[in-house]
C-alpha cells in the first residue's frame, strides 16, 4: 500500500503545481468578479437613492405636463375676446378660474418660462417660426408665444414654443 501511495504522489506533483496555479488564477478571477459585482451593487444602491429623491421631487412632472396644456388653452381663449363680452361679469369669472389655476401650479413648484420680449435661448425656447421685425436691434428677440414652457422646481420640463424676430 505504501508504495502505491508514494508513486501516486510523485506523478501528481507537477499536476499539483499546475492545479495550484490554476486555482490561484481562478481565485483571482472570482475575486475580481465578486468585487465588480459588489461595486455594481453599491453603485445601483446610490443610483436608486438618487432616483427616489428625484422621483419625489419630480413625481408630479407627468401630471403637470398634462395640466400645462390648459395654460395654453386659457391663453388661446383670451387671445380673442369678442367686443361685447369684454366687460361681462361672466368672463371675469372665467378669468378668475385661470388665475386660480396658475396659482395652484405655482404652489406646486411650477414656473412659467418668460417669452415675449426675451432674447431667444435654445435652453428655454424652441423656435417654430422666424418673422420679420419692425425695428432694428430686435433680431433674436421673441415676438410671440405659440405654447407656454414650464420649469418644475427649477428643471425645464417643457420648453416654450415661440416665434423669433429675424
Amino acid at each position: 500500500m505504501k508504495n502505491i501511495n508514494k508513486k501516486a504522489k510523485k506523478t501528481d506533483s507537477p499536476n499539483l503545481a499546475e492545479a495550484l496555479t490554476e486555482a490561484h488564477n481562478k481565485c483571482a478571477e472570482y475575486l475580481a468578479g465578486w468585487q465588480r459585482c459588489q461595486a455594481d451593487y453599491q453603485n445601483l444602491q446610490k443610483e436608486t437613492q438618487e432616483r427616489i429623491t428625484s422621483a419625489i421631487k419630480f413625481g408630479t412632472e407627468d401630471l403637470i405636463l398634462v395640466l400645462s396644456t390648459l395654460v395654453d388653452h386659457f391663453n388661446y381663449a383670451f387671445a380673442g375676446i369678442p367686443e361685447k363680452e369684454k366687460d361681462s361679469n361672466w368672463l371675469k369669472g372665467i378669468q378668475h378660474i385661470q388665475t386660480n389655476f396658475l396659482k395652484i401650479l405655482t404652489e406646486q413648484g411650477v414656473e412659467i418660462i418668460k417669452t415675449v420680449g426675451e432674447t431667444f435661448d435654445h435652453k428655454l425656447h424652441e423656435a417654430v417660426e422666424e418673422v420679420a421685425g419692425k425695428e432694428k436691434g430686435e433680431s433674436g428677440k421673441i415676438i410671440e408665444e405659440v405654447a407656454a414652457g414650464f420649469k418644475l422646481n427649477g428643471k425645464i420640463i417643457k420648453c416654450a414654443k415661440v416665434k423669433v424676430i429675424k
Binding site: H122, E126, A127, E130, C159, V164
Partner: peptide, 19 residues
C-alpha cells in the same frame, strides 16, 4: 453653431434650427 458662436449638439440645436 448658434448665432452667438456657441456650438450646439442635440436638443438645443434642434430648438433653434428654424432661426
Amino acid at each position: 453653431i448658434a448665432k452667438n458662436g456657441e456650438m450646439l449638439v442635440g436638443l438645443g440645436a434642434k430648438r433653434q434650427a428654424v432661426t
